[in-house]
Design a protein around this nucleic acid. Structure first.
Length: 233
DNA sequence: CACGCCACCTGTGAGC
DNA sequence: TGCTCACAGGTGGCGT
């Protein structure tokens, strides 16, 4: 193993001397763990791949729902691989901008929420962080992507970066299974403004939870969307 | 090409 | 207790 890095939601492990990349995607339910040299390495349900290292350690890829993926790709072909060829910019690196977003979204009728979850437009934004970024930006998730002004996209781009950075610093969002590398839970779920809070009052808003007020849940593209109708227009 | 819908899987919790 | 149903962090393929 020469390096471990990431592109979008793919973990990339650079190998030598083969010059191959071992690429892992955890899907919705995947995890990897390292088991030590213990005489009796534990087996768990849904362990799908094990790699033994000379050190005696073992890398185990576990994925109950099997939405994850494993590829072995020659390094020079990585960018041309089907999983990588269409990927958009990284929100936390140079190359991500509201102007770029504006250009990609021009004329698109797809809802803005689905657009920012589209990995060809911007990578790394999943269902939770799409909801949270739109909430912070005050943008209604159902708006046609092509009709969101550059000014509002500037706010949105900033909030996408901020939400992701905060979530990473918090160790992610442990809704149920997600764990940090050290096994501890992430705690960004405690900072959700709207996600999984249907019926509640949103923070910083005087919307009262009631029949008509409070955070709403709708379905877009088969995924739950949470938003505050008062704050997001 | 854009878009809406559905498939891929298993586990869990709510409701009856 | 046990059944059925809805839903879950993501992605890709199909038909229109």
């Amino acid at each position: 193993v020469r390096a471990v890095r990431r592109r979008a939601k793919y973990i990339i492990i650079d190998l030598s001397p083969s010059e191959d990349c071992l690429v892992l995607h955890l899907g919705m339910s995947g995890s990897i763990r390292i088991s030590g040299k213990s005489a009796q390495p534990e087996k768990r349900p849904h362990d799908h791949m094990e790699i033994d290292f000379r050190s005696g350690k073992r890398l185990i890829f576990n994925d109950p729902r099997r939405f994850g993926a494993v590829y072995l790709i020659p390094a020079p072909a990585l960018d041309r691989h089907k999983a990588f060829v269409h990927l958009g910019p990284e929100p936390l690196e140079d190359g991500f901008s509201a102007a770029g977003l504006h250009a990609r979204l021009k004329g698109r009728t797809m809802p803005i929420k689905q657009a920012i979850m589209d990995q060809s437009i911007v990578v790394g934004v999943g269902n939770i962080y799409a909801c949270e970024a739109l909430f912070r930006a005050g943008i209604r998730p159902t708006l046609a992507a092509g009709r969101v002004s550059l000014k509002r996209l500037e706010a949105l781009a900033g909030h996408i970066c901020a939400v992701l950075a905060e979530a990473i610093a918090a160790g992610g969002s442990s809704l149920r299974d997600h764990r940090r590398v050290d096994g501890d839970m992430g705690y960004f779920q405690h900072s959700f403004g709207v996600y999984d809070r249907a019926g509640e009052a949103c923070p910083g808003c005087d919307c009262k939870p009631s029949r008509t007020g409070g955070i709403k849940r709708i379905v877009q593209g088969g995924r739950s969307t949470f938003y505050c109708p008062r704050k997001q227009s």
